[in-house]
């Protein structure tokens, strides 16, 4: 695991939550051994292409997405639709990826980011099966103050 990239991913995630929703998030150690994570309803993926290629993903439950929507809209958004929940997770992934990109390369576009792609399911399991040496995979669990968990994943390869 690249410690610097882990730190950048954690800092970027915390920055997004603390700035946009005033929510403090606490990271746990990255998952490094095979694991099966239940309770995933929404996954947002941003593809990365350029000097660094790969993907950044945010995996979470509907409850987590609803909590974020509520905090970011100050409760004015009413009860969010499923589409709004998906949009919320997509926007979180977009902002985390954008912040990570800026922290990695402020002057030049080291890589480009795609628009988010969203997968929805109900109570699916996320499997972590390890990473290859030349294609590191970081999967970092985060937890909100209310105990709600979410996962941020970075899979990347530098040319």
């Amino acid at each position: 695991m690249n410690k610097r990239n882990y730190e950048l991913l954690v800092e970027s995630t915390r920055d997004v939550f603390e700035t946009m929703s005033f929510m403090e998030v606490i990271q746990n150690d990255p998952i490094t051994v095979s694991a099966e994570i239940p309770g995933i309803d929404i996954t947002a993926v941003i593809c990365i292409a350029g000097e660094i290629s790969g993907m950044l993903g945010v995996h979470c439950s509907k409850q987590f997405a609803a909590e974020c929507f509520d905090m970011m809209t100050g409760g004015e958004g009413g009860a969010p639709s499923y589409q709004q929940l998906c949009d919320t997770v997509g926007e979180l992934a977009n902002m985390i990826a954008g912040t990570l990109k800026r922290r990695m390369s402020s002057k030049l576009d080291l890589f480009d980011l795609s628009l988010p792609s969203i997968s929805v399911s109900s109570g699916q399991r996320l499997f972590y099966t390890g990473a290859k040496d030349d294609f590191p995979r970081l999967l970092v669990p985060f937890v909100l103050a209310n105990g709600e968990k979410f996962y941020v994943e970075l899979l990347y390869h530098r040319r």
Partner: peptide
């Protein structure tokens, strides 16, 4: 209002 933060952009 964007995540695009490079000087170039």
């Amino acid at each position: 209002v964007t995540t695009e933060g490079s000087e170039e952009r």
